[in-house]
């Protein structure tokens, strides 16, 4: 009886550990399967190209809720644009080369990127 109880205990522990490891694996894979990284890429690169080709006194408006999902946050720093979409917390950003000054503003529904002469 003791042996059977000990064996059962071992099996339960193993199952819990395996379950934990696979739960971590599925959480990591979930972001890829939902294509959040691809949507993030699309928005970052589109916005970077728009910034690069814009002339001074242009304002780019990005809707927070759009066809690629919900943009949680948008940052412009160190010559790169970072977009966080659908609760994705990691972004490498995409560089832009525009020679003008950027200013970022936001309200409830949109992000505004204002491009101004130096």
């Amino acid at each position: 009886m003791r042996k059977k109880a000990g064996l059962l205990q071992q099996v339960v522990i193993h199952l819990i550990l395996i379950g934990l490891i696979f739960a971590l694996f599925f959480m990591a894979a979930e972001s890829r399967v939902n294509s959040r990284a691809i949507k993030q890429q699309i928005i970052e690169k589109q916005t970077a190209l728009l910034i690069d080709s814009a002339v001074p006194d242009t304002t780019l408006v990005l809707k927070k809720i759009n066809q690629y999902g919900t943009i949680d946050n948008l940052e412009i720093k160190e010559g790169r644009i970072f977009v966080y979409v659908n609760k994705l917390t990691d972004s490498r950003g995409y560089p832009y080369f525009s020679r003008y000054i950027m200013r970022l503003e936001s309200d409830k529904d949109n992000f505004y990127i204002k491009i101004m002469e130096k």
Binding site: A29, R32, A37, Q41, A48, L49, D52, S53, F97, R99
Partner: peptide, 22 residues
């Protein structure tokens, strides 16, 4: 799964065109 689901969008040709214009 990271390799299979990874997809890179290449916009360097467009960047080159924009840079030429600038």
């Amino acid at each position: 799964s990271a390799v299979i689901f990874d997809y890179y969008i290449n916009v360097r040709s467009l960047e080159a065109q924009v840079l030429v214009n600038q």
